[in-house]
């Protein structure tokens, strides 16, 4: 079990950047919470590649194969970074990194064991041949291009939920 302190810092920092971190205790609890946060979504994309994604209960009626049609993307993130409250998605294992970008809501499932304390820890472990695309996601899409007024949800998701399992 990962140090609860690292998880706590991750939750605190991801909340600071306007993501919505939720701590869940195991798969049953994860699916309860998923049921609630997906209640109002009409088209759900979940690639079903990793174990946690396979364990996620997604209503088949509302499940879509194309992320371009989805209102929400549910995906496991390969890592979290406590220092910045970021989740990490990559192109490894045939994943489309843009799947977490096009829908207005991104639900990241994150195993507590995969949370790194610092950016240095994460990058030191990457090696010299990283996947084609590594994206760190730190809160929702935002802009301040008009009079520096913060506006959430420009081209990417306006809502980022993180389920820490």
């Amino acid at each position: 079990m990962k140090n609860e302190e690292v998880v706590r810092i991750f939750m605190e920092n991801s909340a600071k950047v306007a993501a919505r971190p939720i701590r869940v205790n195991g798969i049953i609890h994860m699916n309860e919470v998923l049921g609630e946060i997906l209640a109002n979504e009409s088209a759900i994309y979940c690639p079903g590649i990793s174990e946690l994604e396979k364990a996620a209960t997604i209503d088949t009626e509302r499940r879509v194969d194309a992320y371009t049609d989805a209102t929400v993307a549910v995906e496991e993130s390969v890592a979290g970074i406590a220092e910045t409250g970021s989740v990490v998605v990559t192109s490894a294992n045939g994943r489309a990194v843009q799947a977490s970008l096009l829908p207005a809501h991104h639900v990241a499932i994150l195993s507590a064991d995969n949370i790194f304390m610092s950016l240095d820890e994460f990058f030191a472990g990457l090696g010299k041949t990283p996947p084609t695309n590594i994206t760190l996601i730190t809160g929702p899409s935002r802009t301040a291009d008009i009079e520096l007024t913060l506006t959430i949800g420009v081209h990417g998701p306006e809502k980022v939920s993180i389920l820490v399992v």
């Binding site: 920092n13 045939g94 041949t129 990283p130 084609t132 590594i134 730190t138 809160g139 929702p140």
Partner: peptide, 18 residues
């Protein structure tokens, strides 16, 4: 503290990748 997105792009799309 960090921008919303940080993209690290290494090379072109691999065969079979998405």
């Amino acid at each position: 503290t960090l921008t919303s997105y940080l993209s690290i792009i290494t090379g072109a799309r691999m065969p079979g990748a998405a």
